[in-house]
Simulated scan of single mutants.
Amino acid sequence: MDHVLTLVAPRGGLATTALQAARDALATIGATAGTPDWLSADEAADLPFAGLAADQAEAAARAALDGQPIDLIAQATTGRRKRLLIADMDSTIVTSETLDELAGQAGIKDQIAAITKRAMNGELNFEDALRERVGRLKGLGVDALDRTWAETVLMPGARELVATMRANGARCALVSGGFTFFTGRVAALVGFHEHHSNTLLEEDGRLTGHVAEPILGRNAKLATLKRLAAEEGIGLDATLAVGDGANDLDMIQAAGLGVAYHAKPVVAAAARARVEHTDLRALLFAQGYRGAAFAGV
């Protein structure tokens, strides 16, 4: 079989009836569907198929599952395992938007979060929105960064994703429109090889309200993907990019496996693959890794 449809549900939520429904849906529109291969019992399975384009198979299976909380990713079987991971940080590798949480230390979280939401949905220029949000933090003591970090939580599956890909020879990079104070700590905690982000400027123990230029935004994320792939001597088809906001969309669309992760509507609509119901382990299942072989558990 030259293609595979991967089905992933919250742990314990993938029934054989769902697999059969997906298999029947593919057969109904002319595909040859093989025997399902369980990657993790009652959680994830591969359904090999041939004779149908990936997007057609995914759409047919999604319709057959009729709103069940199951993530679906269809792709060619060749080259599933990626050799470069590029991941956004906020609301992707960590559960929060760290800038919004930092603003909470200044008592203006709602104001900043409203701007963040619009920027992440592509309604505002990312760089301008970042400058505006940082400007409102002028005078905030840098100790607020430590307090924000103490409350930052990793996304479920983050450690397994990076540890497993590293163990299998992939380069893993955290690329964020957020700030080095947080990306450095997240990278060290999760195990990324490197991190790329923005720098908050400070003076006399307080934020100046400015961010170092040039700002790492949408274009820079795509450029980083291309640069790291070139350094590894691989094509973009051997890369995986994951994120949730509009500033992630270019790298998601350029990567061999680009995943909109619990993403904003504009991103989910434009991405080839999306994860809406499960955690970051889904990105490993999509590459054909078996749950029993995950590292970092």
Rank of each mutant, 00 (worst) to 15 (best):
Q56C: 05
Q56H: 14
E58A: 06
E58K: 10
A59C: 04
A61D: 06
A61K: 04
A63I: 00
A63C: 01
L65F: 14
Q68S: 13
Q68L: 10
I70P: 15
L72W: 11
L72D: 07
A74M: 01
T77H: 12
R80G: 06
R81E: 09
I86M: 00
A87G: 04
A87L: 01
D88W: 02
D88I: 00
M89R: 01
M89C: 01
D90H: 00
S91M: 00
I93K: 10
I93E: 06
E97S: 05
E97Q: 01
T98Y: 13
T98C: 11
L99N: 01
D100A: 11
E101T: 07
L102F: 14
A103V: 08
Q105W: 15
A106D: 10
G107I: 05
D110N: 11
A113I: 06
A114V: 04
K117V: 12
R118K: 13
A119P: 10
N121E: 00
G122L: 03
E123T: 08
N125C: 04
N125P: 13
N125K: 09
E127H: 14
A129D: 07
L130Y: 09
R131P: 15
E132R: 12
R133N: 14
R133S: 13
V134F: 08
G135F: 12
L137E: 07
